[in-house]
Computed example of a mutant assay.
Amino acid sequence: MFANLGNKIGPLLTGVGFTFLLAWIGYGLAFLPGMTQVGPLATSILIAVLYRHFFGYPHSIHTGIQFSAKKLLRIAIVLFGLKLNIDVILNEGVPLLLRDLLVILFAIGVMMLLAYLFKADRSISLLIGVGTGICGASAIAAVSPILKAKEEDTAISVGIISFIGTVFALIYTGLRPFLPLDAEAYGMWAGLSLHEIANVVLAGEPAGEKGLAMALLAKLGRVFLLIPVSLIIIWIMGRKGNKESDNRVDFPWFLVGFIVMSLLGSYVLGFYIPAPEQFANVVSAVTSFILTMAMVGLGVNISLHDLRNKAIKPIVAVVITSILLSIVSYTIL
Rank of each mutant, 00 (worst) to 15 (best):
M1C: 02
M1H: 12
F2I: 07
F2G: 15
N7Y: 12
L12C: 01
V16I: 15
F18G: 01
L21N: 02
L22F: 11
G26L: 04
G28Y: 15
P33V: 04
P33I: 14
V38F: 05
T43M: 10
I45G: 07
L46H: 05
I47W: 05
A48C: 09
V49K: 03
P58C: 06
A69I: 00
L73H: 02
L79P: 03
G81R: 00
N85S: 08
D87Y: 12
L97P: 07
L97M: 09
G109A: 14
L114W: 00
K119S: 14
D121E: 12
S125E: 11
I140P: 00
L147D: 06
E151C: 00
D153L: 06
A155C: 02
I156Q: 12
S157F: 06
F163D: 03
T166D: 02
I171R: 15
L175K: 08
R176G: 01
F178A: 10
L179H: 03
P180M: 11
L181S: 11
A183G: 04
M188F: 00
L194G: 00
I197T: 15
V200T: 07
V201Q: 08
L202H: 09
P206S: 08
A207N: 11
E209S: 08
L216R: 13
L226W: 01
I227D: 04
V229H: 06
L231F: 14
W235K: 11
I236F: 07
K240I: 12
G241N: 13
K243N: 08
W253E: 04
V260E: 09
S262W: 12
L264F: 15
A275V: 13
E277L: 08
V282D: 13
V283D: 08
T287P: 01
M293V: 10
V300A: 03
S303C: 05
S303K: 15
L307M: 12
L307R: 06
K310L: 15
V319E: 08
S329M: 11
S329P: 01
